[in-house]
Design a protein around this nucleic acid. Sequence first.
DNA 1: AAGCAATAG
DNA 2: GGTTCTATTGCTT
Length: 720
Amino acid sequence: MDNSGDEMEEDDTEWKSGFVDTAVLVPAAASGSFNSATTTHPHRVILHFDLDCFYAQVEMIRNPALRQVPLGIQQKYIIVTCNYVARERGVTKLMSVTDAQEKCPELVLVRGEDLTHYREMSYKVTELLLSYCPLVERLGFDENFMDVTEMVESRLGHAAESDSFSFTGHVYSHIAADVKAGDHQRLASGSHIAAELREAIHSKLGLTGCAGIANNKLLAKLVSGSHKPNQQTALLPENIRDIMDSLSGLRQVPGVGHQTAKRLQALGLVTVKDLQLCSLNDLVREFGGPTAQRLKNLALGVDDSPVTPTGAPQSLSDEDSFRKMSSTKEVLEKIQQLLTSLVERMHKDGRQPQTFRLTIRKYSAANKWFNRESRQCPILNHIGQKITSGCAAEAVDQLIPVAMKLFQKMVDTGTAFHLTLINVCFSNLQSRTAAVSGKGSITSFFTYSTSPRKTPSTSPQSQDRSSHGGCRNFTDHRFGLPSTDAQHKKQLATKSSSGPEAPLHGSKCEQKVVVGGEKTLKASGSSTTCDLGDTNNPVLHQLPPNVDREVFKLLPEEIQKELLSPAYVHSLSSNFTNKSVSDVAHGYKNRSPQTITHFKSFKDVIKAPDKLDSADCGITVDHQSPAGTSVAPGENDAVEGTLSSSRSSDFECPGNVDPEVFSELPPDVQRELTSEWKQQKLGLKAPSSKKPVRNSMSRDRKAAGRGSQANSLFKYFKPS
DNA sequence: AAGCAATAG
DNA sequence: GGTTCTATTGCTT
């Protein structure tokens, strides 16, 4: 049944033509616009790199002793990957820890939930590849596509034909030495480039991996795993049919996922050949024209998708999963923990996130999997600036109430809930100046071009690569490739997305986020100083009715401006924005300039409750004195009518909870927390200087949620 | 712009 | 296929 050579399918002219010339199946409109070499020659030269058991390799570099033992990388209760020693003992990817230990009792486990080291190494690989050629596309942490067509042309043009008539590495379904490379000079050249890049990755970074060389991404990826580990394989055009036929099912075709495979199966298609032979009309009926054509092309080994330079990530997220989380307090602490690391990562990136998203997974017996839901909202500029300017603790503090508000949109904290995952995400990442000085003004990109992404090295702290200077030079005379040729620039320009100066990965290059540089803001040094003296603001009449004028006048000018911006005023009808405006106003009104600069973060407070200085904290609630010198209702709330509900002063927080943060939480949440604290207090002694995070302490006070008099703000917290 | 589905490693 | 911890794209509203 394996008719891989050239059997005669009686009536199938359509699919034969697909192999002969990819352009036949490519819509004319598309073929004119995609990248580089397609217009000058029929085939691009595409490389696919795939690092061997990537996480395990990183851990073995960190601890070379692990090289000789069976090593598994554990996330929660599964082995996500393992080294080859472990594979010889029967350990496989995605095996449960118990199964793995049964197979291999000597298995050494390393925890891999924290992806920091993997992410950093991953970007070093991408940057190394980028130092040779700009067309590099990441796929996950351990794979990269590369369009080396230009490099190949350059090499073949410059003659030095020594390399050009032989392949290096494997050639799919051939003995490499037997292949007449002269018929495939461009792929042969690509095989040498792949070998050199693999060697560079090994010598500079200490990592091994596989590579595939073919005429498109689909084929390069499919062929790269033909010989593992640490080997490479090229695919000749005449063997496309072979490799497609070798796939055991449609699921193996990159781009065909579970859902698509199921729909195809419903049409009676289970093998690649089934799809190749299926009438296009049937597919169009099920999937629509473009998807139908793409699926059929994939089955034929045809893929015209360009290698799209990945650039800096478009979102940063952090998440944790667990068996069960069912109290608001746990949720709050988990969110705080996730935010703390996410904000730090965001700061190193240097860009300013415009959107925050909270995702949860609710337990459900029926559908234990894939039930994630999320809510997102804009990030106020003053919070975003805290991140970029390095005020991480304050940024976290101010994001926690935002996150809890989103949380409550998804979960009725009044009734039982059962979460198994929480994710926090920053997206819509903008390069500094753009955000503040009004929507993407292009000019702002270039005025502050501080972190050139030309040099492959990113973070100063990981700067052991003192030899990095050699990279460029090596590249240049080796490949004689000006990375500035027209084709590349064209494609790069289309994806300028995140701004030219955004580093590929965490620069942490203190780009002096000139807060005052923006403008009129007088406070030069301290970014958060309030300007209490400014009383003649001509635009107060623009304020929405629920914003207290007196409070507004107390805000720093930058915040005022933000609140008055057209986009902002326009969106004031939404729940979120109303609430946020109020919160902002409220938060600031209760602080003198001095207390702001010395503000103790929630994180700091919770970690060192005994070091609290009450003078440093918000003044509305005294969380320190055992006597409970909480401020009387209304005493500090000049804006009682509009703003007081979320800050009922008739309560007390445990000593390790920042009242500022607490006060900004939704009333429901305050109520639940208060009742938990109350119970804990009754149940056990208050720890004063212990493992602070887990427990809470101090006195309670029942009436935390007693803002039952629903004012205009209360409704925003009601589930709906 | 928000939320989700699908795909990927 | 799902375990994990991400990340991207495209559809729908």
